[in-house]
Design a binder for these strands. Structure first.
Lengths: 280, 280
DNA sequence: AAGTGGTCTAGACCACCTG
DNA sequence: AGGTGGTCTAGACCACTTC
């Protein structure tokens, strides 16, 4: 059968719109019709239908459950941001954090990690992969790299209890002082998706952090992936547009706000958030 | 033809591994074989091959160009994080920011926005959609909502030049004081992808911000989507593990570091970064 | 057993780019 | 014209869940 050749801007998009109406007409947790039923109703093949569903799943509006069906997501990914009546109380961090060590080995640093930690690529490092859990639910996967000479006798159990930085101080005499951290959006690959329990290609936050001790020596390089459907960064910013219009400009004093929001320039304090990486 | 039923853990994953080897063996910008050639080499159908490619494109390792082919991405999505020899200089923000107004209308707030801005759903707001550009390249799409009574006479051109907060102060007598902002990872939908020039389902950062003036009255609600392949947040953190082991715990004094990195508890300062949204 | 989502195939047509 | 990626189809088999 040949479909009408008129301008039909992406069948997938049409299906997505229909799905979004279905979602909006239902309450969180409600089931929606099965893939095969929707295919027939909409007159599309299953891969096409599934492709549209993929998008809503990635956006966090729909969830699939294997032999059961598809359901309107319970936790809206964009939930209420701001203040509950009195004050400006921010959503509090909650839940109990725990760790489960997945891998604990000593390996050579290699070129990439060695460069970051400023040690020889042949130097040994403790490599730890651990799952971070909140109230027993996987929240993130974390890959730590620490020069082995700095943490003799480190055991896996050490990485499942307490504060790692306190351990560095109390047992190894290392005082962390400063860290440079980058945050960027990513999507989960197969391994990450499996470990933190989300679909492949789900939104996630990628953290990279290089931590130095009080002598400026790098002590840890951390690479971690946080699931995007349950983790967000919330910050309260104190703004201060220059009280004196003629005085020194107050630009660059708005940590956490993307620079373009504030001015036509790009000067941003390295101090906190809000930096741009120019494309090489 | 029936494929050997042995444990073949996802054909797609096998293809992805092969593709990653191809990428690593080439320099940025180099072409890789065409989809049909790869299908034959790997013995998979084209949808399967494309599904694997989709993942690498989303990750930022590959780029597709319509009638031309597939190429190793030029800009590595995870670029060098840390310090260039002397000091700890952070990558500086760079480039010239500009704005292009896409839509400028006055509409009723509606339930969602009205609630956020703490005004009647029937109250009018200025709704502005604008593209944010860096050196002429699209970087983000931004949706502003400002109560119309606060900004009489606001014109589209006002939103393309200068600092909006300074405009609020100088022309409308509003002094922004505080903002609550959330940052979460997301993926682009069709509209966002088209506007900022990335593939659908690319990683992106979703900002939401509610800004209040010095009387605590909300003056703007902003929702913006930043492309993930060219934008990242970089911060320098000054850490301070309690110098006195017996004193009050220094926990919660590490802004920007996910709480689980520090302790088994969940107490995190609302002050800055690093909050968890429990699933409702 | 029957229904669900998860994966994969083989082939088709289109739009775009390069000779 | 011939290659490339972009989209879609119709059908198959599997794994999981429910009855």
């Amino acid at each position: 059968m040949v479909s009408e050749p008129g301008r039909s801007p992406l069948k997938r998009e049409r299906v997505r719109e229909h799905l979004m109406e279905l979602v909006e007409a239902r309450a969180p947790g409600d089931p929606i019709p099965s893939e095969r039923v929707l295919c027939e109703q909409l007159g599309v093949s299953r891969p096409t239908l599934r492709s549209a569903v993929d998008e809503l799943v990635a956006t966090g509006l729909l969830v699939r459950e294997h032999g059961r069906g598809m359901f309107v997501a319970r936790a809206k990914i964009t939930q209420e941001l701001a203040p509950d009546r009195d004050g400006h109380r921010l959503p509090q961090a909650s839940g109990t954090w725990a760790s489960r060590v997945l891998e604990f080995t000593t390996v050579r640093a290699g070129a990439r990690v060695g460069r970051r930690l400023r040690i020889s690529p042949a130097a040994e490092i403790a490599y730890i992969a651990r799952l971070r859990l909140v109230d027993g639910e996987p929240m993130a996967i974390e890959y730590l790299h620490v020069p082995a000479v700095l943490v003799p006798g480190l055991r896996p159990a050490d990485m499942e209890a307490g504060d790692f930085y306190e351990l560095l101080r109390d047992r190894h005499g290392l005082r962390v002082r400063e860290a440079v951290q980058s945050i960027e959006p990513t999507v989960t690959n197969e391994e990450e998706a499996r470990l933190i329990g989300v679909p492949v290609l789900s939104p996630a936050l990628l953290f990279e952090r290089l931590t130095c001790d009080d002598t400026g020596r790098p002590v840890e390089y951390v690479h971690s992936v946080y699931r995007g459907d349950r983790y967000r960064i919330v910050s309260r910013l104190t703004l201060d547009v220059a009280p004196d219009p003629a005085g020194r400009p107050a630009r660059g004093h708005h940590p956490g706000i993307p620079p373009g929001d504030l001015a036509g320039r790009g000067e941003v304090p390295a101090q906190m958030l809000g930096d741009v990486q120019p494309a090489p």
